[in-house]
Write a protein that binds this DNA or RNA. Sequence first.
DNA 1: CATATGATGGACT
DNA 2: GTCCATCATATGG
Length: 196
Amino acid sequence: MNILPQSFYERDPKVVAIDLLGKILVRTLRGIRLAGIIVETEAYYGKKDPASRARKGGKLAEIMYGEAGYTLIYGVHGNWLLNITTCPKGIPGAVLIRAIEPVEGIDLMMKLRSVKRLEHLTSGPGKLTKALGITKSENLLPVFSKKSCITIEMGKEIKPSMIGKSHRIGVREDLEEPLRFYVKGNPFVSKTSLRL
DNA sequence: CATATGATGGACT
DNA sequence: GTCCATCATATGG
């Protein structure tokens, strides 16, 4: 259903992060479609980014230097974080999906997370991966490929006036430029982000 | 093999 | 609002 092409991801992480807002993240789990609108993202660079894990080298860095449009799943604080690699091969970059607004398969998501309130279901990077049943085994899937069980589809256009930006969350040293982007007024944007 | 660290979440006051 | 459990990585012995 109108999956975004690989070329979509072969751009600057910041541009991709902004453009990803309003798109549909689709996860096929046991034949069931779980989908949500992306409402919050963060851009990460390579060496020049003090917050990026690519800076420390290791396996993560290799993936960020690799081809665009692949899932990059990484564990922190006992949670899984879903990233999409950006930039052509040889240039490091990634976009972290921080929050989505659930639209399909909500009952299954709530089962996976056992939360009472809908607005707590996917309003955070670790929360949405649990709700979608995403773990390390979903690492390195091409999100531009129809047969992949994680894809990103065309959604609704977000008006530029509806896009807010801020400093990134939970990083020690951030860059000068705000690299976190979100849909203004959306209840599924993570609230923990109020700490600045 | 042991230890430190964090792109966090959730429980609790 | 505050506090701490948690575990995949990275790095050092």
